[in-house]
Design a protein around this nucleic acid. Structure first.
Lengths: 340, 340
DNA sequence: ACTGGCACTCTGTCCGCGCGAGTGCCAGCG
DNA sequence: CGCTGGCACTCGCGCGGACAGAGTGCCAGT
């Protein structure tokens, strides 16, 4: 129906204007700034309906309207066109990520890039181990019965772990063990590594068996270690810019950001298909984020996600632009990680 | 002279009261809350002198007095007694740092601990590489002409670096190179590593020479790479609590904190002797920190410092307590690192 | 179904005013 | 000579009222 259609246009216009001006938007201003083809009075009627349906609300009796979480939700789902990035932005992405030296460098550049593009707080999850594959295992003897196990993944991540051996080992043992480990695990997904251990134990020469058991136990432990899911966070300074959008104070939000586990849960709950996920206001389970929105997406090479990245900001944010930025950055990061 | 002595008592009282109440303090309140043995009128005279000398100032003609940077400086240098930590605080330190798993874990626990003890932003510098020694070098081939160089130090730090090779390499080359590198560098202080390169180039077999040059160049770069001096920052949420102390906005400060190099310079300029360094307001070279104070100290095992740590907060802070906390935490961290 | 007009409501702001805190100065006292 | 009580003065802050402006809902007209 033409009616409903126009009402949605009105909602879209309200969201757009409110996002850019931060003032509650009234019927008159709306009629002036948009070609809706109708008079302010008509818009007022539409707005009354939109308010009744819960898409918008007015801060005080005699102020303009402001989108509700539900209004933003509808806007994101049905009213916003994907906003292509500008050439300058694309160039910025390439320039930023080119020449990264190592994994940490890639991720910290990514987070700065994302913060700069969106003017929000940016969050990047370290690639989870379980979905990557073993590139190489290295053993270094640090004492007669103590080895340092270093795991290098195909995403360039390096994990280390001290292993106490049940018996003394010599140089040849270490070399044998190293060969054996790499033969067994190289190329295997980390998630599958635990399943390979029994085979390994069978094929291992008898005199090494206890040693192999100790080292592979440590390896498996390293792989499932949940504490390894780290985050890189940046752009907190952008919060000060939008402080006005957080009436209470920034405190709970800053606390939630430090409480990395909270954000981690949000960022890591991503679809593997590359769809950008938007959580608006109260949709966030955690209370401190009830006034904030989270835009996140999985990144990775090919079809499987290595981790998530995204931004956290006020519900009053430019969703189309930010969604485009998040998606583009995720895509580039996936590429870079695939190359290295 | 008894006069000067009492004036200093007055200054001390002003600092203490102002820090705890955040209200400009007047002569009457001062006489009531402290046993100065004189009347408000006398205190007024003293305050007039202190103001003339630049130790205090009044926000408006008819308000109480507030310490200036110079006033805080005098307070820190001559008026504050070292405040011993409470038993609970000492226990908190031990509990916090016990059971840390690896270097990253130690440092992130440290920064949270420090933030919690001082209610300020805490900053911890990663141990600098240059004073540790090479334990092992590992090479992994990730493409026909691309190697991943992994450096393991005796402080348990692992550094990685991608190396583009001038020529294609095969598996044997990598093995030879690995042996050669370890033979040359193992046990060497990182600071001395650069000096070993010429020797290495001479002894290298001719067909590997270009390769060796590339890899050792990368290695040296990794060692001197100033970007490796990383920071862990925490407790930014505490800034929100003291937002009232930063009249403009938190923004420049948050930006400076993200601009890690600025903070790094402050934190790393520490005395190796374990003296706590306090920089007050304008004493900080960087403009964004002109309203803030930095309390820092070097940490390390034995006599040489591995890095710095400290806090950043408003000039109106509890210096004695914070200085004690910073020093205590540095001491414990030094111990922990020495053990591991 | 849309439009123009109109009365109404409410907020943000400006102004003026009085209060209170705090000061500087001065004369007096030990 | 230093301290003290008293006093006049200044100035920021908070309160209340008036006011303009923006925005709304409703209604009658086209």
């Amino acid at each position: 129906m033409a009616h409903d259609e126009r009402r949605l246009q009105v909602l879209r216009a309200i969201v757009q204007d409110y996002v850019s001006t931060n003032d509650p938007v009234g019927s008159k201003a709306l009629a002036e700034r948009h070609d809706l083809g109708v008079s302010p009075a008509t818009i007022r009627n539409d707005m009354a309906v939109l308010e009744e349906q819960g898409y918008i609300t007015q801060p005080h009796t005699s102020a303009g309207r402001v989108p509700t979480d539900k209004g933003y939700r509808l806007f994101v789902d049905r009213l916003s066109a994907v906003k292509p990035l500008s050439v300058a932005e694309k160039r910025a992405i390439e320039r930023f990520l080119d020449g990264a030296l190592d994994l940490h460098d890639i991720l910290s550049r990514t987070v700065r890039l994302l913060a700069q593009l969106t003017h929000q707080v940016a969050v990047v999850q370290y690639p989870t181990l379980s979905r990557s594959a073993v590139r190489h295992l290295e053993l270094v003897q640090v004492a007669t019965a103590r080895l340092l196990l270093v795991l290098i993944t195909d995403t360039g991540r390096v994990e280390q772990r001290l292993v106490d051996c049940p018996v003394d080992v010599d140089h040849d043992d270490v070399a044998d063990l190293r060969a054996l480990l790499n033969q067994t695990f190289a190329g295997a997904k980390l998630a599958d590594a635990a399943g390979l251990v029994p085979d390994l134990l069978e094929t291992a020469p008898p005199h090494l068996r206890r040693l192999v058991a100790a080292v592979s136990a440590a390896l498996v432990e390293t792989l499932v270690e949940p504490g390894e899911d780290r985050l890189v966070i940046g752009g907190t300074a952008n919060l000060a810019r939008v402080a006005v959008d957080f009436p209470g104070s920034l405190r709970p939000l800053l606390e939630a950001l430090e409480e990395q586990v909270v954000v981690l849960r949000l960022i890591s709950e991503v679809d593997t298909g590359g769809t950008v996920l938007v959580r608006i206001g109260e949709e966030n389970a955690h209370e401190a984020l009830s006034g904030a929105s989270v835009v996140s997406v999985g990144y990775g090479s090919g079809d499987h996600a290595l981790g998530g990245l995204g931004i956290v900001g006020p519900t009053r944010m430019d969703y189309p632009t930010n969604m485009a930025a998040v998606r583009a950055v995720a895509r580039y990061v996936g590429q870079i990680l695939a190359e290295s």
